[in-house]
Write a protein that binds this DNA or RNA. Structure first.
Lengths: 155, 155
DNA sequence: CTGCCTGCAAACTCTTTGCACGAAT
DNA sequence: ATTCGTGCAAAGAGTTTGCAGGCAG
């Protein structure tokens, strides 16, 4: 069971859509799957450029939808202005996000009941469920004690 | 039990913070509480201007945080670029949003278990919970049948 | 008078798009 | 050749902010 599965899935998706497997798309893919944490489009651009410095911001923004549509990436919107992304895997399809409001660090926790809840509630309204997100906002304990978040980077 | 409670709560908040109860702030408040559905900053501006045409966009954006901080308004982020707002009440503090992805119409459904879940999960991570949101995205049945959403307005 | 408030317009952030060049089949 | 892909820079949407004047206490 190899980690190359996403790569194959992505390339299969591109081919199926009649799209080309370009150097830039591969660089962006590699950069995305080298990340250990959630990342933004801008961070992805930086990392992709380290692999292939011809990658432009526009191409990153054009490639991200391809990666989410092909199900190899998951989009995480914590309502902070910018969107975060992370590799999707069969083990993290139903997760809740716990977000530190001080540093925007995102923790994820399995929440299998979400899917059931989404279906139940949608059907009650005559809707067809597509997806559900559960997000908890919280302060870290360190913040409560020290008055600031140890992970905090932004302004 | 009067609907003027939010007004008093808002004015008390302003006074406590040493802020003034201006005509513009009152007009924006009145406009917000006259809405039957979720509304955006832009819609609020329109309605506030119908009450007091001197209200500017800037003042609306400066007043919205005052109303959410004073707990009379709730912010609803459905990840669509713009934020929605609606009056907060004791009966709708723990609600899930069900959003039609075709028309962005927002349905709300009580989900009391959310608070319990947020606390459980936060404490497990050593965090202090602040709030939680549960959002379900769905298509309306009409969309499935007709190929388009009957409520759809945007492009 | 002393500040808080305001409208205006410019600035900002993140993302999308038009265009002409470039690369792959 | 033809089609798709790309970088660049400009445009876009929503929101925030600097400033000079205005109004409340």
């Amino acid at each position: 069971m190899s980690d190359d599965l996403p790569r194959e899935k992505f390339q299969a998706y591109l081919t199926r859509k009649g799209l080309r497997v370009t150097n830039q798309r591969v660089a962006i893919f590699d950069a995305a799957f080298a990340q250990k944490e959630h990342f933004t489009a801008e961070q992805l651009l930086d990392h992709a450029r380290a692999i292939d410095d011809s990658v432009s911001r526009a191409t990153v923004y054009r490639t991200l939808p391809l990666m989410t549509e092909s199900q190899i990436l998951r989009e995480v919107d914590i309502g902070s202005g910018e969107k975060y992304y992370r590799p999707a895997s069969s083990t993290n399809t139903q997760v809740a996000q716990v977000v530190c409001v001080d540093c925007d660090k995102i923790f994820e926790i399995s929440a299998p009941f979400m899917e059931w809840y989404g279906s139940t509630v949608s059907l009650k309204l005559g809707l067809k469920p597509i997806s559900q997100r559960l997000q908890v906002s919280a302060h870290c304990i360190a913040y409560r004690q020290a008055g600031r978040c140890p992970n905090r980077i932004k302004k």
